[in-house]
Amino acid sequence: MLGLTSLFRRLYRLISWFLLGIVVVIAIAACNNNTPTKPDPALTENCRVIQHAMGETCVPFDPQRIVVLDPQMLETTIALDNKPVGSPLEYVMPPVSTEGIEDLGDVDAINLEKVLSLKPDLILGLSISTAPYSQLSQIAPTVFVDFEHSGEWKEDFAFVGKVLGKSEEVERVMADYYKRAKEFQQKMTDSNETEVSIVRIYPTQINLYTKAGFIGTVLEDAGLSRPPSQDLNLEETKKLTGDTIQYSISEEVIDKADGDVVFVAVGSWDDKIQEVLTSLKTDPLWAKLNAVEQGKVYEVGDYWIGTGAIAANAVLDDLFKYLVKETK
């Protein structure tokens, strides 16, 4: 149940969006309060009609000033060489570069005035976004990508490629990725016998990631196996945990984090993460894990819980770095 603080924060955000929406409507005098459901055929000569989570939008053939509403769309557009002019930057994970990109504030409270000031010709977001679509679509053509979980990153990448008219570039990026994954398998001949555990440190808990999410798909492409505690597909994860791609574990069942190799994803977005990690390292039960005793626990960045092609290639970099050397 949400606490009072969270409720007040959400109420504050709703009021903020309402007030900012008034500013946007006034600033865009030529627009009205109705969001068109179908583009005017007479206006589609210089744009392509895209079906998306919120209906239809006529997208410019060559958008030059893209605004994105979340880190996934930021990574996706950069991977397609369409660097956006604005994005929320709070949770952006290296190696995604944010240089020269205007910060739009909290991903759950997009600064509409700043979006307006950037004069975008396209706005991209996810269907789970809390940003007000009707107001954004008055600023510029706005597309919301259907999103359920990070394991769909390849489909989302292909969809954005279609939106931007860069489907061929998507194919090239993915071909390079699959080529690297194949090279990893060839260099690590026993990859399918190596069980890789994924642990993520949160400010208040420790989670395990199953094979349904982003990192699960990358490990599968690399030919790596998962320990039984994480060898769960989407439906199995939902049935067991109620979540789609991850679940938290307590100290009493820390053995579920074990594997032949353990990768611990450690972010820098909250100071408490390091406190939880330090506590974990001093836990006697953690010290008894096979991977810990064998010295095969590796700390990696939050891009292991990423959502796109840039993060996927960064994960492959780590797999080559930490695992291939062990087979030499």
Rank of each mutant, 00 (worst) to 15 (best):
R10F: 14
T44F: 13
D271V: 15
P228M: 09
E220P: 07
Q230P: 01
I310Y: 04
E252Q: 13
A309R: 15
I15Q: 12
T5C: 05
Y247H: 02
G267N: 03
Q135N: 05
M174F: 08
L316N: 00
I254S: 05
W286T: 13
E183Q: 05
I254E: 01
P63F: 06
I249N: 06
A29I: 11
K187I: 10
Y322T: 14
G259L: 13
F157M: 04
K239T: 14
L323D: 02
I249M: 06
R65Q: 11
A265I: 11
V218N: 09
V292A: 12
L224I: 06
T237S: 10
A265P: 00
G3H: 12
G105A: 04
G267P: 03
I206P: 03
Y202M: 13
Y209R: 06
L89E: 08
V218G: 04
G216I: 05
L43T: 04
V68A: 00
F144E: 15
D156C: 14
P71M: 03
C47D: 06
S225Q: 07
D231Y: 07
D255S: 04
V276Y: 15
P41Q: 14
D156K: 07
S97V: 11
S97A: 08
V199H: 01
Y178V: 08
W286P: 02
V67H: 01
L240H: 10
E152M: 10
I66L: 00
D81K: 00
L219W: 09
A257T: 04
W17D: 04
M188V: 02
V25L: 13
G21Y: 07
V199Y: 00
D106M: 03
L89Y: 07
D317E: 10
V218W: 09
M1C: 15
K182V: 07
W304I: 03
S268T: 07
D70Y: 04
I123F: 03
L43A: 12
A181I: 02
T44Q: 14
M93Y: 07
L323T: 00
P39K: 12
K83I: 08
D231A: 12
Q205R: 03
A222W: 04
A53T: 00
G308F: 09
Q185L: 07
L124F: 08
S6P: 00
Y322M: 07
K166C: 10
D283C: 12
A175W: 09
Q186T: 11
K162I: 01
L11D: 05
E293H: 09
I66Q: 05
R172L: 03
E169T: 08
R9N: 15
L43K: 01
V25S: 13
T130M: 05
V253C: 08
S97N: 08
A265D: 06
L104G: 09
K38Q: 11
Y322C: 02
P227Q: 14
T194Y: 11
L74N: 10
A175G: 02
R48E: 13
W17Y: 06
P88M: 01
T327Y: 07
P36Q: 12
